[in-house]
Write a protein that binds this DNA or RNA. Structure first.
Lengths: 147, 147
DNA sequence: TATATTTACATTGTGTACAATATAATTGTA
DNA sequence: TACAATTATATTGTACACAATGTAAATATA
């Protein structure tokens, strides 16, 4: 009985990948109504809390690189949610600020997490356990950058 | 203290999304050497185990829709890993088979999961717990298709 | 202070990912 | 058996996602 570790059922990565995709898909249905994609939504969450942020800082918060963040921010600026300004002190860095339109979105966005959370149907303990395990993996992966 | 449920730290979906992305990134580094992307890799896993599969069946296995699967399979066919054949009995369905080149890949692919698994650094119990919680969420999301 | 290095973003190219739509084959039904 | 409805796949358009590369500004060093 060979190749057991190549069965989808025996993978940890596959349910992780599929689960992430399905949760994001669920979010998208709600986010579409307020004009955000999922990636734009997590960018707004970072900015609602810590604006202004540089492009690099935002990318680090979200585990995204500049090839993703730059076009993402351009679309968000075109939609009027944020503003990008090149820093006066260091002309290399671009600062990202929220506009009033971006701030106004917060009220409606706050309704969404409980709706999606309800679909997951986990107990409080299960939620905490899953949360901790995910961050544990995330941290462990950062440790082993080299391999 | 408003909008606590909009902080990245308080989200479950965000570590899920980030974790999935980082694990896939880790896989990619190994998969590149054998000429596969991550999505192609999980498609091969499904096919190694259950080939032949129709496009729809494969899409269901992987939680992917035809807009993703069709171009994916076309690239894999161009690379010589699989073969697509329109079914004789039902001309609507396309059957996907593995080629010899695709079969030969299995040996090298089998080396990869333990390498990535090592980076996750979870105990046996933690791995089982995470696995079960991910499938629980995945199943619960399928139940609540409507909302 | 000239030059090498580093840093911060941006660009390019390839490959997903999915909603919405289109198309052709099959099946159900009057 | 015509024709409507369904099914299976493909196409289109938009938006990530990242590796590799490019570029300009800032910093370090001889």
């Amino acid at each position: 009985m060979g190749y057991d570790n190549l069965k989808l059922k025996n993978q940890l990565c596959f349910p992780l990948y599929a689960c992430s995709k399905e949760v994001v898909r669920k979010y998208k249905k709600h986010l579409g109504k307020i004009g955000l994609t999922y990636t734009q939504y997590i960018a707004m969450m970072a900015l609602w809390e810590k604006s202004p942020l540089s492009v690099t800082e935002l990318g680090n918060c979200l585990y995204l690189d500049s090839g993703t963040v730059t076009p993402l921010l351009k679309r968000m600026e075109a939609d009027g949610f944020i503003k990008r300004t090149r820093n006066d002190e260091d002309e290399r860095t671009v600062m990202v600020d929220i506009t009033q339109k971006g701030l106004d979105l917060r009220e409606q966005a706050a309704q969404i997490p409980p709706k999606v959370g309800g679909c997951l149907n986990l107990s409080h303990d299960e939620t905490i356990t899953l949360y901790k395990l995910l961050y544990k993996v995330l941290n462990n992966l950062e440790m082993s950058e080299d391999e």
